[in-house]
Design a protein around this nucleic acid. Sequence first.
DNA 1: AGGCGCTTGTGAAGACGTGCACAAATCGCG
DNA 2: CGCGATTTGTGCACGTCTTCACAAGCGCCT
Lengths: 230, 230
Amino acid sequence: MARLPEYLRALHNLAETGHETVSSEGLANAAGVNSAKLRKDLSQLGSYGTRGVGYDVGLLIDQIEYVLGLTQRRAVVLVGVGNLGHALAGYDGFASRGFRIAALLDADQELVGEEINGLVVQHIDDLPQVAAEESIAIGVIATPAAAAQRVADQLVAVGVTSILNFAPCVLSVPEGVDVRKVDLAIELQILSFHEHRKASLTALPAAGGSALTALPGGLAVTESQEAIGT
Amino acid sequence: MARLPEYLRALHNLAETGHETVSSEGLANAAGVNSAKLRKDLSQLGSYGTRGVGYDVGLLIDQIEYVLGLTQRRAVVLVGVGNLGHALAGYDGFASRGFRIAALLDADQELVGEEINGLVVQHIDDLPQVAAEESIAIGVIATPAAAAQRVADQLVAVGVTSILNFAPCVLSVPEGVDVRKVDLAIELQILSFHEHRKASLTALPAAGGSALTALPGGLAVTESQEAIGT
DNA sequence: AGGCGCTTGTGAAGACGTGCACAAATCGCG
DNA sequence: CGCGATTTGTGCACGTCTTCACAAGCGCCT
């Protein structure tokens, strides 16, 4: 499930504040979901809480980390050290949550050799070499859209089977390769849509506008405090 | 719908390459979705294509932009000019897709006064002043998790009704305020989960493992090339 | 030891999204 | 003017996700 990482983060918070056990409702609040949904998710893990008490925080953390495959520290290659890539390379949230940036790559010779956060930027053509030295399963693409597909092909060629794509384009990859996409502008546009809808509703309290001014009721917009991409 | 921005991007690509009309199947391919789904989405807009021909690219762009509320260039405030915030401030994808960063804010006096991409960083306490000068509907939070809730409260206090949250925490906001969350580490963890699942499947071709080694079939993981968040 | 309150795990119902398949509509061509 | 090729729009069925509600189980207190 895509919600497990959110639970995991909430559990780590709880562990740091000294909680040893947590009820499904408490954890659901901390993760921003319904308590029944959370219980169903956890029951699918085969993880057993204790009725009348709740879940053991430490045990649950271990189980979720195991299911997410976080028991091993996975190596990640980051391709594209422009604006966004630079920020990602310096983002400590990766290291603190079980990932290690194995290499920074870019096609621009101007950037090759630059040191960011203790890592030296290498040329994209060195990718096979990097992949040969250690097993890379996850690649992050932070290049312009025009270069993204080409980079994706190169990543797949060296055995990467999961890609996180920040470029605003659709990647085509062979079956068996997972792609998740994060597009910052799309997020803003979705918010803009909500803004527009709210403005229309206050301007026209009653229904009856055309489909363009007020969307039909069937298109009700749900509250959306959730993880990405799901 | 959360897919409209994706369609819009694909349409802009098509317009630049000289296409005047596009079939539902062509657009669906470009956006990475099923053609029936796309037709159903567009029909909800009240937008009419022409049977036997397809959709008029320019007209469709106008309609989607109207529905998304992109006919006006919306002003956005960005709070938190650390690693990620700095990159966001320099990201030209915002300006090119209908948004304008109205102000950069931070609580750190060390950063106040710095100029990024033509904008000067102001102190977070100047937020009411910024909001008074022009209507701000959207706020972006790129602060550490510990500060995020406080910033969200301040944004809501000056009338912001949509928030894009990059901090790894759940925000609580009054009803009527929309929050979308983007957590980069969570994206990686989801990919890690897929990796772990793939590894388990190859190691154990047949089913029968415990719930911990191989998740029950009911938890089938779907292909996920989609926008975030939804 | 027994009862009581609390919490989990789950059955069932409902909402929702998805995709197929086909009727209706339009254009172009002879 | 009529026919066929093409494409939209949509009814229908199916699977998934969500939520409620409640029985089963556990610990604590008397």
